[in-house]
Structure formats: C-alpha cells, structure tokens
C-alpha cells in the first residue's frame, strides 16, 4: 500500500487528487445530460470559446473563471440567437462561433507578451492547483450539482420530451439556458484538470460508459460519477509514477474504463438467455 500513500506526502498531489475527484463527479453528472441530449459538439465548442475570456481576465488581473463564464454565456446566447433567428442548423451555428472565438483567444494570447502557458490551457495543469483554485472548484462544482438536483425532474422532462415540457408549461427557454450555463460553469471547474482540448472526454466518456450498464437516470449519474472519480484518481497516480501529463492520464483512464465496460457488455450480450439483459 505504500505506493498509494507515498505521493500523498506532497501537498500539490493531495490538491490535485481533490480537484480531480470534484471535477470527476461534476463533469460526469452533467455529462449525462450532454450525452442524452446529444450536446457533445456544443460542449466541445464551449470549452474552446472561453479562451478569449480567460486571456482577457488574465491581462486585467481578474479571476480567470469570471472571463470564462462571460464567454460561456456569450457562446450560449450567440448559438441560441443564430439558431432561432436564421435558417442555420444548430451544428453550423456552433461551428461558426466555436472557430471565431477560439481564433480570437489564440490571437489575443499571441499578441500579448504572455506568461500564460498555452499548453496549460490546452491540456490542463493539474499539479499546479492552488488551494484558492481548489476552493473555487469546490464552490462552483457544488453549485452545479445543487442546480442539477433542484431541477432534476424539469431537466428530465425537457431532455426526454421537449413537447411535454411545453404542454406542462415548464419554463423551457429558461431551463435550456440554465443547462448551457451549467455546462459553461462546469468547463471552468474542469479547466485546470484537463484543459480545453480534452474537456469533451471527461464530459462525455464517463456518462457514455454508464449508459452501457444502467437504464435509469439516477443510477446512470451515480455510475458516471464513480467512473469520473476513479479516472481522476488513477490519472493523478499515473501522472506521478509514469511521469506523464496528468490531464491526458485522466482521460486515458476514463477511456480505458469505457473500453473494458464496452467489452464486458458485448460479452454479456452473447451469453445465452441474457439477450436483453441489462439491470435497472
């Protein structure tokens, strides 16, 4: 067991583990909605469009999360407006805004004599998590989880049957933008762990894995969260012992779990008498 405890003597490893656990839970639970609603491309776009906000916040000396949130909201509103007011399909609208904002961010970054490391932004900087970062991660992550819990049945109806949500007179536009806002906040929470380029993996992979093993939404969220936590912890240890970057290690762990569960599910389907078998 010594190999498990030995890294814990370093405070930065402990902070990295805590951050990975929180992010694992928050991303995986929200990721369930992203998977069920087919919003993966939007999630990918949003994790990139926050770049100009982060860079601007850095130059102005503001918390990076503020800049990211502003851009997250602008992205959500921009895509919503383009989809509603023009004949563009949603993925086209997302593509236009995705590319435009990301280019703006890279341009800003290259123009300023910056000490922000682009690699940290792209792939995360899990071992550089400060205790201030950790508090922010915990606070925002808690907010996301609380909102998902409070609006559980509304998000469920909206995701499963938007027309039912409308005939029950639920505030569908509000709920839609609330969900987009939650995605933006979650991306901010996860930014330091995996960075923008791998963000989509921790939003989508644990939820996709969970969808193989359960047919109930609460169970799917719990299983996804567990996979998120295990991947996060495994990633930090793998980073420590194998000397690889922690962010990619987290994503590789999640992908490995995905492949194992996929394989087990396929084997199970072939077992006689269990053709439709999936626990509830």
């Amino acid at each position: 067991m010594n190999w498990l405890l030995q890294p814990l003597q370093y405070d930065f490893i402990v902070r990295a583990l805590l951050a990975a656990v929180i992010v694992g839970v928050v991303c995986s639970v929200l990721g369930v909605y992203i998977v069920l609603r087919g919003m993966a491309f939007l999630g990918d776009a949003m994790s990139h469009t926050i770049l100009p906000g982060v860079v601007a916040a850095y130059f102005l000396g503001w918390p990076l999360a503020v800049g990211a949130l502003v851009m997250g909201v602008l992205t959500a509103l921009g895509i919503g407006l383009l989809t509603r007011r023009t004949a563009l399909k949603e993925d086209t609208a997302i593509g236009v805004i995705f590319a435009g904002f990301f280019a703006l961010g890279v341009a800003m970054l290259s123009a300023g004599a910056s000490t922000i490391d682009l690699a940290h932004f792209l792939f995360g900087n899990l071992l550089g998590v400060s205790s201030g970062d950790l508090w922010l991660t915990a606070g925002l992550g808690g907010l996301v989880l609380a909102t998902i819990f409070l609006f559980y049945k509304e998000f469920l109806v909206l995701s499963f049957d938007p027309l039912l949500a409308a005939t029950l007179r639920l505030p569908t536009t509000f709920l839609h933008y609330l969900l987009l806002l939650l995605i933006a906040v979650t991306i901010v929470v996860a930014l330091q762990v995996v960075g923008v380029s791998l963000m989509l993996a921790i939003l989508v992979t644990p939820a996709a894995t969970a969808s193989f093993v359960t047919h109930r939404l609460p169970t799917m969220m719990a299983v996804a969260a567990l996979i998120g936590v295990v991947s996060g912890v495994a990633g930090v240890y793998a980073g420590y012992y194998l000397d690889i970057a922690s962010g990619p290690a987290v994503v590789l762990a999640a992908t490995a779990i995905f492949l194992v569960v996929l394989g087990l599910t396929a084997v199970r389907r072939r077992l006689p008498g269990r053709a439709t078998g999936a626990p509830s």
């Binding site: 069920l36 049945k153 509304e154 109806v157 499963f160 049957d161 359960t214 047919h215 939404l217 799917m220």
Partner: peptide, 14 residues
C-alpha cells in the same frame, strides 16, 4: 433514454 415506464408516467405529474 434511460427511464422506466413509471418514470415516464410520473413525468405527467410534473
């Protein structure tokens, strides 16, 4: 979608 029959009927109550 990961919902049971009971979940779907309960949606009518929302």
């Amino acid at each position: 979608f990961p919902v049971t029959v009971e979940d779907v009927v309960m949606m009518g109550r929302v």
